[in-house]
Structures are given as C-alpha cells and as structure tokens.
Nucleic acid binder design. Structure first.
Length: 720
RNA sequence: GGGCGGUUAGCUCAGUUGGUAGAGCGCAACAUUGACGUUGUUGAUGUCACAAGUUCGAAUCUUGUACCGCCCACCA
C-alpha cells in the first residue's frame, strides 16, 4: 500500500503541490490537449465552450471571505464544465479599483503625515501604481490558494495598456455616436475626497436635524439648509395649490431677506409636494438636484453659494468663507434678529446623501463633467432581458435589474482623482467646451477658438469595468473574442447588481451587438457565524486564508457552498468548516480502506459480473449521479455538494463499507471480487463528482489510486 | 414613499415539480484498540411566524397580518 496513504490527510503539505501540478499541466487553458475531450466520439460536448470572466478582485489588498466564495463558485462551474468536455475558460483579473484604491492610499499618506493635495498628479499615480503592483501579487497568490482553475496566461489588469487604449477609444466612439456629452449639470460632490461621484457611489443616511420656517415676503418657507438660502430668489409652489392661488407664475415680489432687500419671482411647478412643510419653498439650483431640475424647466438663473471645499462664497456677505456647520447657526441667528424666523422643528428626520466611503455629506454642485446618455443604451438592455437573452439566478434579480434600468439617469463618468484611466479629451477653459482627443492633436476650441488644455480627470472605474468581458477577450479583434464572446456566466455579488452588471450589459450590446453573458449568477454576502455582517469595527472578519491553513481549503470551500443557495446571504461558522475538514479526512480513509482491503485486485473499468446486490448498489449510485448532474446544470451547487457529502459518508462509508468488511473477509470469491470492483468504481465516481468542490483532496487521492494516469482535473464527469 | 428577501430543531441554515419534516454543529446514552476517535450506533428536541383560502393532501400555492433584514428613491 502506498506510503502516502498511511497518515491522516494533511492539506497543508498537499494543496500547494497540487496547484503547482495543475498550473504546470496547462489544463487551466482550454486549448490543452485532452485525448477523450478532443474526440467527438468520446465527448458529447465536443467543440462547445464555457466561459466565465472573473470579477477582478481589488489589487489593493488581501482576499476576504466574499472573494473565497466567488472563486469557489466559479471554480466549481469551470471544473464541472471542463470535466464535461467543454473548452472551459475562466479568465482571472486584477482591478485597480480607482476611487477605492486611492482612498486606501490616501489613508496611508495620512499616516505618514502627507496628503495627495500637495502632490503632483504624476508622482501620486506612480506611487499608487507601485503600491498596487505589490499588493496584486498577494492577491494573485491567494486566488491560487483557493484553488482557482483559471487561465493565468490570459490574466488582465484593469490598467493594462490595451485596456486603457480601448477604454479611451470607446469614449471617443460614444461621443461620436452622441452617447457621451460634456454637460454642466448637478453632480454629487464629496468635499473630503474632492471628487464627483455617480449616483451609485452615494448612500442615504438618516439624520435628525432642525427644520426651520422662515418668513419670505408673504410666504413661510421651510428648509433644513438655511446656509444655502442667500441666492434664493425664486419661490416655488404647486400650480394646483389653492392656498396660493392669488400668486401667479412669474410674479415679482419685493421682500426683505438675509442680507437685505431682494426681488423674488414666483414659480409654479408640479414637483412641489403640497403636503410637505408649507407647500412653498425657495430653490437653490446650484446645490440641490430637485431645485436644479426646476430651474432647468423654467430656465432660471443658477448661482453658486458654496465652494468645492464646502465654504460659503462672497455672495454670503459677512458669512463668506465660513464652513457650513459654522455658518448655519449664525445665519439662523441673524434671520431671527431680523424677525424672519417663524419656528424651528427640532425633530426633523430626513435622509441625507453621503459619500459611500467616508459618509461625508454630499454637497451637490454644478460642474462640467462627461456624462453617458443612459436612456437609449438602457432601452437595448431592457429589450435583451425581456427577450430572455439574459437569465438571472435567482430569478428575482431580473426585476431588480429591470427596475434600475428603467429609472436610471445620465451617468457622470468624470472623477477628479488620479488613480484611473485618464479621460482623453481637451477642455476649453474659456467656454468650458470639451472634445475627445485620442491622438493629442487638438489645441484650439472649435466653439470659441480658445486655447484647450488636457482634461485632468479620470474615468469612473465602472466605465472600464463595464467593458470588462470585451476588454478581457481582446475585442474588437482576435480569436478569443470570436470564440468566447458572449460568455456564459457572470458570477458576482448581489451588491454589484447596479454598480456593475447593468454597465456590462449596456457596453456589451453597444460595442458588440451581443449580450456579454447568458446567465447572471448572484451570490450573497458571507456573514459571520451569527449571520451578522463582517466588519473590521465589529472584529468579526474571517480571513479565508487563515481558516484554510487551519482546516484545509477544501473544507472552507465546502463550508462556503453547502447550505448557501444562490442570492442569499450565508453564515460562516468555524465549526462548520471543521466538520468538512473531518469529511475530507473521511474521504481519505475511505480510500485507504478500499485500497487496503482489496489489495491484489485491479480495478477493471469494464467489469460487468456484479452480483445482484452490487448491481443494485451501482444503480443507486447512478441514480444519485444523475440527480446531482441535474443539480449542477441548474446551479444548485449547494444541493449537489450536500448530497455527495451525505452519500459518501453516511451511505458509502457507514453502510456499504461496513457491510463489505464481511464480504471481503469471506470465502465467496465471486462476491468478493464483485464488491471489490464496486468499491473501486464507487470511489472513482465519488472522487470525480466531488472534484469541483474539493479539488485538492480528490486530485491527491486520484493520483494515489491511479498512479501514472492522467490528472483528475481533466477526467470526464461521471455519466452513467 | 416604492421594491425585494426572510420567519423551519438550542445555533446556522437546506428543503428543486404540494405527498407522513432534513443537514451541520450542539445535546444525551452506549460502543469500539487496524479505514478513520477528525469514529460508530441509538436517541431527544419542531402546532415549518400568525390567520384565512385552494386541495384528497400545504413548510411548499393564493390572500392578508406581524416582526426581522436588505435594496431603491431628486421628503425642500
């Protein structure tokens, strides 16, 4: 008997070695030679491809439990399809993660007593680049540690030269097609990070703030933001509001305001909620999205009140230069002194838009930015989903996706950060026009003849990530693009249902006329043992690499899969993983027993002289495998794994092997031989079908029971 | 304000098309020195949130209620 089988299974000495064997074998590449699979007579899926593009993990740090989950899921799908004879391609990647990485790096700078605002853009970029490249290595090593059978020869980084160039080309193409425009529109501004943000990069936070009622001429207006009211010269009410019938649209009223007398204009607009406050409000189009829309509709003046650092501008008179928080009480005090404060509601609860990273209150600003016109693009995406060209797992994400698509507004793709793909455009400071300029040839403004400078902004990271399936496969030309696009499955977290998935659908359809993937598989959050969200502040973060070093990666993978249906969040308990470590050892010992107790009997793949008892055992196993195959085909990996676990331990080991002890020790040579053949057969089926879930253990055992044979990774999936 | 998901054993959760309720961990008792103690055998614990309905039959389908969680949203 083989020496290797005498000890308990030790994942720590096995996993690295096995992964190296796989990587060297070339079987992660779909082109690798596989005799049975390359023959249409032995491979029912001959010539078919199966493709997954890996959501590129952030290159700025280490893997977390969520990464381990998605790598496991995608690896299961890839290994399963590979064993079924498909040319299975899984392309790994690394994400520069623009804004996110820049924030990580800014924190590092802060610790060192430095700040990005004093640095040359180029120097900052180079520093972050070096930082990212260093961390990228750890990330990749950890992806390997999870067992990812992805094709490293095709790995892409989101700042690879061709990725940058193609992203910039898309920008130009969209501009030429009228789908990208430079607009002076209201945007989300983070005063801490000094950049604009898209709508999906902001969150709402419930805050209790005072709500003030001020006398504004004959009206009483309600506001939670008195500090923006300096420039307010439009007073708005609903056209159907009978309380204000006597006032007409466009009517001018002289009144006393914060810094003296002003002339206000009455505006009637249906955006006003008659039930809210007094039904009358003044507007600040420069610093509020609703107000901006009203001003657009009626062609009203817009004036900035607050600068990009969050301080009041000279229009605020004596308050100029003050930060919002300092200015607010002083302004209220002054209005009160002038007798214009009517009352204060101290318990006003409302949602305030904040930066999703630092929770700083968003100060909306009007700014020249590049925008993607979403309506026509979204229409095509909606059509594709309605025609069932894209399937969602679980299905309810389809509705969520469609709702978002139907309601999405134009997308601001300009970011005032250096860490990203630069926007290849020239900007005219005189008339603020902008023109894409891929070749850096434009110097004068076509609108006003003014001098043009290079745009210093970078793309929103989702602008390039949205094109990821095409970029990775070498669009617009190349064999990979022809062979593997559209891809099969996009497996990603449900938190990316808006940030990423819709952009990919849009870009896929726009660039190639094809959907980028047939199926979207959403996984949930990996929570702690109590089902609570993992967070550094709670101290309940589970490091997958650490856990795996204790129990084995196969055990962690099983722990992540079993009991975790698509779309729902899961709880990761250490005890659960320990249980699967025990299972790995069980499989190890089953193999030991079968080899030991059948010494001298060679497995015969064509053996048919089974006793009726063994024939029925074989049928039982065949039925199970049919069932499991159906689970695999329908993305019920959690069920497939659990059934295999149960069969292997509680049927094969606890019952069949126990019964076999007497048979194998007995005198009935026919029965003995038949059972030995069945046990070998069952072991092989179990190892094969467990392989997508527990690749290291099963590959190791396969090598031991089948010395000199081919690797398990390319064995055919059991079909009986 | 709108939408989605959940509510099943002490804990974490499965339960694919409706057919006498499951897993892991935990718990109790027992067993066992050669496949494995990272073990085995046996067992206890559930009006499947609540109410009504459809059905021969509902954890599963329908409607409503309650609570929990998540997401979306231009509530001045």
């Amino acid at each position: 008997m083989d020496q290797k089988l005498t000890k308990p299974y030790d994942p720590t000495t096995t996993e690295g070695r096995i992964y190296e064997t796989w990587e060297k074998s070339g079987y992660f590449q779909p082109e690798a030679d596989r005799p049975w699979a390359d023959n249409p007579k032995t491979n029912p899926n001959f010539g078919k491809t199966f493709t997954i593009i890996m959501p590129p993990p952030n290159a700025n740090g280490h893997l977390h439990a969520g990464h381990a989950l998605f790598i496991t899921m995608e690896d299961i799908m890839t290994r399963y399809k590979r064993m079924q004879g498909y040319k299975a391609l899984w392309v790994p990647g690394a994400d520069h993660a623009g804004f996110e990485t820049q924030i990580v790096y800014e924190k590092k700078l802060e610790k060192e007593g430095r700040s990005r605002f004093g640095m040359e853009a180029k120097d900052l970029y180079d520093e972050i680049y070096a930082f990212t490249m260093e961390h990228k290595k750890y990330m990749e090593a950890e992806v390997r540690a999870v067992g990812a059978s992805c094709d490293w020869s095709r790995e892409k980084f989101t700042l690879d030269k061709d990725v940058i160039e193609k992203t910039q080309t898309t920008f130009k193409k969209m501009y030429d097609d009228g789908l990208v425009y430079r607009g002076k529109r209201i945007i989300n501004w983070c005063t801490k990070h000094q950049t604009s943000l898209s709508d999906v990069e902001t969150e709402f936070k419930e805050k209790k703030e005072p709500f003030y009622y001020f006398k504004y001429g004959p009206f009483t207006i309600g506001t939670s933001r008195p500090e923006t009211k300096f420039g307010d010269k439009y007073v708005v009410m609903h056209p159907a509001d009978t309380r204000y019938q006597e006032y007409t649209h466009g009517q001018q009223i002289d009144l006393e305001w914060i810094n003296g007398p002003i002339t206000a204009t009455v505006i009637k607009d249906e955006a006003i909620d008659m039930e809210f406050g007094t039904g009358v409000m003044t507007i600040t189009p420069w610093h509020d999205a609703v107000d901006f829309d009203i001003a657009q509709r009626h062609n009203l003046d817009k004036e900035p009140i607050i600068d990009f650092k969050g301080r009041l501008l000279p229009i605020a008179g004596e308050f100029a230069g003050l930060k919002i928080a300092e200015a607010r009480p002083k302004i209220v005090e002054k209005l009160q002194a002038k007798g214009l404060l009517e009352k204060i509601d101290e318990n006003y609860l409302h949602n305030v838009k904040v930066c999703y990273k630092c929770e700083t209150t968003i100060e909306p600003q009007i700014k020249e930015q590049w925008f993607v016109k979403m309506k026509p693009l979204a229409a095509k995406a909606i059509e594709a989903v309605n025609e069932n060209k894209i399937k969602f797992i679980p299905d309810n994400y389809r509705k969520i996706f469609l709702y978002w698509m139907e309601n999405t507004l134009d997308w601001n793709i300009s970011r005032q950060i250096v860490w990203g793909i630069s926007i290849p455009a020239k900007i005219c400071d005189a008339c603020s026009d902008g023109t894409p300029d891929l070749d850096n040839t434009i110097t004068t403004c076509k609108t006003c003849g003014g001098e043009m400078r290079a745009d210093t902004d970078t793309f929103d990271t989702w602008f390039s990530s949205g094109q990821w399936p095409q970029l990775v496969l070498g669009y617009p030309e190349g064999k990979d693009f022809e062979t593997y696009h559209p891809t099969d499955v996009m497996e990603t977290g449900h938190d990316l249902i808006f940030k990423w998935v819709p952009r990919m659908v849009i870009f896929g359809l726009y660039l190639t006329g094809q959907i980028p993937f047939h199926t979207v598989y959403m996984h949930g959050l990996v929570n702690d043992a109590q089902g609570k969200k993992m967070s550094k502040s709670k101290g309940n973060v589970v490091n997958p690499i650490e856990i795996a070093s204790k129990y084995g990666m196969d055990a962690l993978r099983m722990g992540l899969v079993i009991g975790n249906p698509p779309g729902s969040d899961s709880a990761l308990a250490e005890n659960k993983i320990k249980g699967y470590k025990n299972f790995a050892n069980k499989v190890w010992n089953i193999s030991r027993f079968i080899l030991e107790s059948t010494e001298g009997i060679n497995f015969d793949g064509n053996f048919s002289a089974f006793t009726p008892a063994d024939q029925s055992l074989k049928q039982e196993l065949a039925d199970l495998l049919v069932d499991i195959t159906s689970d695999m085909d329908n993305y019920r990996f959690h069920l497939a794994a659990e059934k295999l676990y149960h069969y292997t331990w509680h049927r094969l080991a606890d019952e069949i092997i126990e019964d076999s002890k007497n048979i194998l020790k007995g005198e009935d040579v026919v029965a003995k031989n038949s059972r030995a053949q069945f046990l070998h057969f069952a072991l092989r089926q179990v190892l094969k079908s467990l392989h997508p879930f527990m690749p290291f253990l099963t590959e190791e055992l396969w090598g031991i029971i089948n010395p000199g044979g081919s690797l398990l990774i390319i064995e055919p999936w059991p079909h009986l």
